[in-house]
């Protein structure tokens, strides 16, 4: 365990660090559940996140983004790899030992409806963590709950409502208020604004910024909206079939789009201010990838315009720094 101690002593301690994280889901099929199938949802994911930093995660549907977020928080058990939270290896902590870290690591789930207890009122949902972790009680609890609701744009009249009496975007905002109320150090935000119209989205993104400025919280910000990710994150990682294929300062990744997959993702974005309104429709041709049977070599090669036979379908590229920018890494034999 000496390595852990070393890590904890690093000059700029990372609040979260993951090493070679992998998740393989086992599915039981067949009559008696005897047939097993594997889904490689995540493999070899390594990165660290500093206090006050936002790492954006982008990638196709099914690429493993939610799995990554939940595995870091140990809501899903990793199959392989290590997770360090504030220098402490939490990979194998028992539920009991995890408890003391729970307040400091929060999540806003992708599907707010299934993450909100239908039998609890908004007041109870947002106040639960505050009470559980003994952060507030009585009138203070009431005040903090009201404040959090106001910050996500919901008035006091929402306090006694149940989740099914809210609109989709209102539920999403309740989930955000709940996560931020307990002053966490790290929050996984899984598509936190996907159900919000742009004006409410702007308000929520500003709130996340404010809280980060004030409290130095780190975010893992998962979103399919590249404009939003580029805007809010310091760094961005592009996930393809459970692997990071490009990672670096958001601005650089968005500008240079070194991995052909990154390029395709960006080119597929519609721009409302573009007069023709068009996106390059078939920017990404070919079969969508399956986590059940990842292709050999570079997983992207069957859809890649640059793929070379005998190379990309055989060898697996690893993440390498770009020559003029060590912070920017890409896993491709023919980047650029």
């Amino acid at each position: 365990m000496t390595q852990d101690v070393d890590l904890a002593k690093e000059k700029q301690p990372a609040v979260v660090r993951v090493d070679e994280l992998a998740k393989v889901y086992t599915l039981r099929r067949g009559l008696l559940g005897r047939k097993k199938e594997l889904a490689h949802a995540l493999s070899g994911v390594t990165f660290s996140l500093k206090r006050g930093e936002t790492l954006g995660i982008v990638g196709e549907s099914g690429s493993g983004k939610s799995t990554l977020g939940k595995t870091i928080l140990r809501l899903i058990e990793p199959t392989y790899g290590r997770i360090l939270f504030d220098g402490v290896d939490i990979t194998r902590l028992s539920d009991d030992q995890m408890r003391k870290h729970r307040r400091r690591m929060q999540i806003v789930f992708q599907d707010p409806y299934s993450s909100l207890n239908p039998r609890m009122t908004v007041r109870q949902i947002v106040g639960e963590g505050l009470e559980l972790f003994r952060l507030a009680k009585g009138s203070e609890l009431e005040a903090r709950t009201t404040e959090m609701l106001a910050r996500v744009g919901l008035g006091g009249d929402f306090m006694d409502r149940y989740p099914n009496e809210l609109s989709g975007g209102q539920r999403q905002r309740i989930a955000i208020a709940r996560a931020l109320a307990v002053k966490p150090d790290f929050v996984v935000c899984d598509e936190p604004t996907s159900a919000l119209d742009v004006s409410v989205q702007a308000q929520i993104l500003n709130l996340l910024s404010e809280i980060q400025d004030d409290e130095n919280v780190a975010y893992l910000f998962i979103s399919h909206d590249l404009r939003v990710v580029e805007l809010v994150s310091h760094r961005m990682a592009v996930l393809y079939l459970g692997k990071i294929v490009e990672i670096g300062p958001s601005h650089d990744v968005a500008e240079r789009r070194l991995h052909p997959y990154t390029r395709a993702l960006f080119e597929a974005s519609p721009e409302i201010d573009r007069p023709e309104g068009g996106r390059k429709h078939l920017a990404l041709a070919g079969e969508p990838p399956s986590a059940h049977a990842p292709p050999p070599g570079c997983a992207f090669h069957p859809r890649c315009p640059r793929a070379e036979r005998g190379k990309c379908d055989v060898e697996t590229p690893t993440l390498r720094s770009v020559r003029d920018n060590p912070q920017h890494q890409v896993a491709c034999f023919f980047p650029g």
């Binding site: 989205q201 702007a202 500003n206 910024s209 805007l231 310091h234 300062p249 958001s250």
Partner: peptide, 22 residues
């Protein structure tokens, strides 16, 4: 309110986050 990243500078660690017009 449609976010436009090109209207904002690249983020620096420790510097205040972006504020969108609301």
């Amino acid at each position: 309110s449609i976010p436009n990243p090109s209207a904002h500078a690249a983020r620096k660690l420790g510097a205040p986050g972006p504020r969108l017009p609301v």
